[in-house]
Amino acid sequence: MAVFLMLLLLPWSAGGAAVCRHCPGPLQNGSVVAQYCASQAGTKSEGRCCWEQGTHPERLLGLDLSNCSLSSLPPGLDEATTTVVLDLTKNPLTLLPNSSFLGFTQLQTLVVPLALKCPGGNSAWEEVTTNGSSRFCQGQRNHCNSSKELAWLCPEDAACAPDGPGLVQCLCKSPFHGYKCLREGTFPMLLFCGILGAVTLSLSLLLWGTQRRKAKKP
């Protein structure tokens, strides 16, 4: 019971907390994350992160990974999808794949080294500017609202939804589901779980029987 309560009290998720501790020390003085955190009421800084207080779990708003000697994006970044401000400056990054920001629908300010482009391209942002050795990608655009050209990506019974800078996803409209939202009606969850459980149990028994016979052999 005590362990369960401790898990509930952990901020947001283990993955998000791990990202906050990826670089030593607090928020860098003058970083966009530090400025954002100071300008927002009801926030607190912890390691390289800025958290929104008063929510359960607490929501990660800002992530400062500037000057962390990063040659690639750190593991666990996908656990920080609620981030509004992210600073990646002063790092020897050479590649910034668009898929790295899948699910970052709340991201409004991303600062990257000047050598890198904004993920999704300039069209994915309201404003792209440069300042010294940094590139500022600001105001993530919702391509589902701003571009009619993307409508063909989704099947007839699905709706377009943003999924990160320059990324979209197709969500099936009720009561459709399945591949290309071609199936209508409620998803047969009980039947699916029953079949999956039966297959798993059968494979487990088969493996247990074969391994047991091998163990009995001298």
Rank of each mutant, 00 (worst) to 15 (best):
E46L: 04
E184M: 10
L65K: 00
V19F: 06
Q35M: 10
C23E: 01
L110R: 02
A18D: 08
T81L: 04
D163H: 15
P218S: 05
S202F: 09
Q53D: 06
A198W: 01
G209S: 12
R135I: 05
G76H: 02
C20M: 02
C154S: 14
L10Q: 12
C137S: 05
R183E: 11
L102M: 12
P188D: 07
H143Y: 15
Q138A: 13
L88C: 09
C50V: 07
T81S: 14
N131G: 03
C37F: 10
G178H: 00
L27Q: 06
L190R: 15
P188M: 14
S123K: 12
Q140K: 07
G197A: 15
Q53A: 10
L116S: 07
F176I: 00
G47A: 04
E52S: 10
L110P: 00
P119G: 06
E46D: 09
L190E: 09
G209W: 07
R21L: 14
T82H: 08
V33S: 08
F136D: 03
S174I: 04
K44Y: 07
G42L: 00
A151H: 11
C20R: 01
C49H: 06
K214Y: 12
E52K: 15
A38C: 02
A115I: 08
Q211A: 13
L196K: 09
L73S: 01
W125L: 01
W125A: 00
A158D: 12
N29S: 11
G120S: 03
D87E: 14
S147T: 15
A14M: 13
E156V: 12
L107I: 05
Q28C: 08
P165C: 14
Q35V: 11
P155D: 13
N98M: 07
P74H: 05
S66I: 07
L65C: 02
N131E: 15
P11H: 06
T83R: 02
Q169E: 13
L102C: 08
L93F: 04
L77E: 08
C144Q: 08
N91D: 12
P74V: 02
C118K: 01
C170Y: 04
D87H: 04
